[in-house]
């Protein structure tokens, strides 16, 4: 089975079970290597359907303060692209079976060598790629390599995307489309944007791919609200924030359960 097929299987299963996918993000190497492995394994045991694993970059221009700090910490501890792939292999060996989508800015991939990165990532157990500063216009080489290796290429759409761009970007996406809920950078927010449902509907008119919504989702009620309108619920900053500090693992587990419950039982959690 290719990585893309594994991702597709997750969304098929969720649809069959009448629920959305819970898709946690974690910044690889934060707070340290050992805890990264523990956090991802814990989330895999309490309802994660698919992981986004963040490869740290020195200049994360689409990220807010929480993920900036986390990836900076990871870099300061010497986390490299190779380390991130090694952690993926280790997680696979530990029995973590959910698909991994690697999220990286383009320069670390470009410096590694696009083709070689895609091959090594696929061999390590990565199933798809999300590169937030690489629009399809510039992604020819990456897409070709991903097709060859069977990896999904997931692009982002934003509330500012025009109908024309929605069509164009969707036509380059495989696996699912990542909808950025807000016009902004990553970070937990207290409210979901009021026009989110309208944005999701606007994208859906142009594609049959599963839609996953991320940016700003911080609690079970928000996860449930998103699960009512989309196939996937992506949570990054809130979990990364919980991961810092002494009892990080316990806090990630508690928040992870709440988020998974929200994503999996949209009507049982939060106001409709």
């Amino acid at each position: 089975m290719t990585g893309l097929e594994r991702i597709e299987a997750v969304f098929r299963r969720c649809r069959a079970e009448g629920r959305a996918a819970f898709m946690p993000y974690h910044a690889m190497g934060y707070p340290d290597r050992q805890k990264t492995l523990q956090i991802i394994r814990t989330l895999s045991e309490i309802g994660a359907d698919l992981f986004e694993i963040g490869i740290p970059h020195s200049d994360p221009l689409a990220d807010g303060p929480t993920i900036q700090t986390a990836t900076y910490t990871a870099l300061m501890q010497g986390t490299t692209v190779k380390d991130c792939l090694a952690m993926v292999r280790e997680l696979r060996a530990m029995g973590v079976a959910q698909p991994f989508c690697a999220m990286s800015y383009y320069n670390p991939i470009f410096a590694y060598g696009v083709e070689r990165f895609v091959e090594d990532a696929a061999a390590a157990g990565v199933d798809g790629l999300i590169v937030p500063d690489l629009p399809p216009e510039e992604a020819g080489e990456l897409e070709a390599a991903c097709r060859q290796a069977g990896l999904a290429t997931i692009y982002l759409l934003a509330p500012t995307s025009t109908e024309e761009r929605i069509r164009y970007v969707a036509s380059h996406c495989t696996g699912f489309i990542y909808l950025v809920s807000v016009t902004g950078i990553t970070g937990a927010r207290s409210e979901l944007p009021p026009d989110l449902a309208e944005f999701v509907a606007r994208v859906r008119r142009h594609t049959d791919l599963p839609l996953a919504v991320g940016f700003g989702i911080a609690n079970g009620a928000q996860a449930a609200a998103v699960a009512r309108i989309a196939e996937g619920v992506i949570v990054g900053s809130a979990l990364v924030k919980a991961a810092g500090g002494e009892d990080g693992l316990a806090r990630v587990a508690a928040l992870g359960r709440e988020l998974a419950h929200g994503a999996h039982h949209p009507r049982a959690n939060g106001a409709s």
Partner: peptide
Amino acid sequence: GGKFVPETLMPA
């Protein structure tokens, strides 16, 4: 050259 930016900025 080219355009390497988050999707939010592409329309701008």
